[in-house]
Design a protein around this nucleic acid. Sequence first.
DNA 1: CAATCGCTTCACT
DNA 2: CTAACGAGTGAAGCGATTG
Length: 349
Amino acid sequence: MVVIYIDMDYFFAACEELRHPELAGKPFVVGTSPPEHRMRGVVQTCNYEARKYGIHSAMPMTEALKLCKDLGYVPPDDAYYEGISAKLSALVRSRGYATESDSIDEFAVDVGDMGYPEATKLAGSIKAEVRSSIGLPCTIGISSGKTFAKMVCDSAKPDGLRVVPEPELSGFLAGKSVDDIPGIGRKLSEKLASMGLDTVDKLARASATMLVGEFGEVGTYMHMIANGRETERVVENTGALSIGRERAVRINAGDAVALRNTITDLSGQVSGEVTRQGVLFKTVTIKVRYGDFTVRTKSISLNHYTDSAAVVLDTAVELSLGVDPTKAVNKLGVRVSSLVSMKGQKKLF
DNA sequence: CAATCGCTTCACT
DNA sequence: CTAACGAGTGAAGCGATTG
């Protein structure tokens, strides 16, 4: 099975350059930042000029500013990025192959048993069309499965197009470090490193039984991938599994009014999105991060599906009564899950 | 024993 | 000076429970 994997380059920042051409060529970031404390957030994405300074996603804004004195800052505009993402999605899907969108700016296209030369041509034409009709750069990887195509894509950034056919896959994987495998991030690679497994090579030779014992399901996945065997298929999207909003706050211990106000606001935003997507939900979850950064979640599953804004609000407020009144609150979130699409075609339960 | 529940952990951008 | 820096969105995994 041959998969073409498309990943936009520095997506949010590229979108901003598209509508603010004056930003291009100068280092800037798109970053989260609570309104009351500017520059208190983290970097979400940055352009390549900023990357030259060592700035990257998730870096605290304060640190990024230390690395680059006159770093530009743009607040995120999710609705705008969603709009561009929708155009991209239509463009990619118009080619007629099974397509999965992995995130707002990533697409996996299953071209079946198409040969590599032909797949390369197709990828080249997609890349050119993304550039000409959307105006944005992207990178495309092609290989014998979704996970491998994504890894090839990552290795070709930015503005690249790279093919690693099946026979060359083991050679490609050999030089990789474990955190080059999608789904293996900071925690998992740290644990693997502590076991002496820092490269895909070593991971491939580790005992599968041991990996499953240590990592459960993920252990199976990492062992398979390290050995060049794909586990993931390209699956047409079925719709979101959950919808949530969260926000950093500064709420003093026991301030029930502030707590309730924030919960009310977040619930309203979630309800708006529920309506916009035309879904029903059955589960409501709140998330609380206390002053010491410990996170707690509380959830309730109703005995029926609903799209009622009042139910989101009432349930979230009820759950918020369980918040520890002796602790300051750092962050709050409201989320609904167990979704079904309201109109016609079913999504996932 | 399979589905569901409540909750935690993790990976991204 | 190993302390301080720390957003938002979403999925997956896991142990317990339930029918």
